[in-house]
Amino acid sequence: MNVFRLAGDVSHLVAIIILLLKIWRSKSCAGISGKSQVLFALVFTTRYLDLFTVFISVYNTVMKVVFLALSYATVYLIYMRFRNSYNSENDTFRVEFLLVPVIGLSFLENYAFTPLEILWTFSIFLEAVAIMPQLFMITKTGEAESITTHYLFFLGLYRALYIANWVWRYHTESFYDLIAIVSGVVQTIFFCDFFYLYFTRVLRGRGKMTLP
């Protein structure tokens, strides 16, 4: 464990909690892409299958359980509890355009052709594109509430911090996981456009982020 990875995990947890609290307190999931949240729940489910078979550390196990619980709770709030506030008419990104290439790639590029390893690789590739429906929804509506942009900021920051963690681990323990690194870089690149808007509009304007 290093400070970059710890900061990344905390940033990830903060993002998930920001979103969950926003939906719960406003009793509405307007402007939130349910599809992205389902994809994130799928990412955690396929990545943490070793939750009961491999024990890494208390921290690792606790964080996996927390991420799984909070992501499923978020999906539950969107599609069940506050479903009448869900903007399905704006959440129209075709997730099959993400799932098909990700499934194909995880069969092609993996460390071992075993179910657990392929599902882990699937979760890594899927996480890189899971935010697409949410970003697409924001471009479609042309705006995002500032709390939603803070969620996206911490979500994008988490994987950027993981990249720092991978650089650190390569130099200190000459460890590197190419699949995770390539996918993590792609994932962070997808956030760059949002980061630009976040720093130029939200942090300065202090209001909604309206797209040009």
């Binding site: 990875r5 890494i56 460390y111 071992a112």
Partner: peptide, 10 residues
């Protein structure tokens, strides 16, 4: 296939 890496990251 390269060797499977230890999965100690979240």
């Amino acid at each position: 296939d390269e060797e499977a890496k230890p999965k100690d990251e979240l």
